[in-house]
C-alpha cells in the first residue's frame, strides 16, 4: 500500500516536472520574475483576488489561452481599447514571461 503511494507520488512528480519543462521550453525568453513584475500592470484593473465584474479574471488562465488572447488584442482582432493598448507594447519576451508567471499562479 505504502509503496504504491510512493510510486504514484513519483509518477505525479515526474509528470508535473515534465509538463512544466515542456511549457517553459515553448516560452522563448520567458522569465518568471519579469512576468511577476509585468503582472503589476495587469492587477491595476484585473482584480488579483479573482473577482471578475466588468473585467475578466486572468489568474489561473491557461498559458495557451492567455497567449492567444493577447495576440488577438495585439492584432486588433479582439476589441477593447485598453487591452489593445496594453498588448501593443508587449513583445514576445514580455508575453511569454507573463504567460509563465500566470501559469504558476493558482
Amino acid at each position: 500500500m505504502k509503496s504504491k503511494s510512493i510510486l504514484l507520488l513519483i509518477f505525479l512528480c515526474f509528470f508535473l516536472t515534465n509538463k512544466l519543462y515542456a511549457e517553459q521550453n515553448q516560452l522563448v525568453g520567458a522569465d518568471a520574475d519579469y512576468g511577476e513584475h509585468l503582472f503589476g500592470e495587469c492587477v491595476t484593473c484585473h482584480n488579483s483576488t479573482g473577482l471578475g465584474q466588468g473585467i475578466p479574471k486572468i489568474t489561473g488562465m491557461k498559458t495557451s489561452h492567455f497567449i492567444t488572447k493577447i495576440l488577438a488584442y495585439k492584432t486588433k482582432e479582439k476589441e477593447n481599447a485598453v487591452m489593445q493598448m496594453v498588448a501593443e507594447r508587449l513583445g514576445e519576451e514580455e508575453i511569454n514571461s507573463l504567460a509563465l508567471y500566470l501559469s504558476k499562479l493558482k
Binding site: T44, C45, H46, N47, S48, T49, G52, Q53, G54, I55
Partner: peptide, 11 residues
C-alpha cells in the same frame, strides 16, 4: 469596466 477597475486598483 470602470467598476472592475475600481475593484482592481483598490485591491
Amino acid at each position: 469596466e470602470s467598476i472592475g477597475w475600481y475593484s482592481g486598483i483598490t485591491s
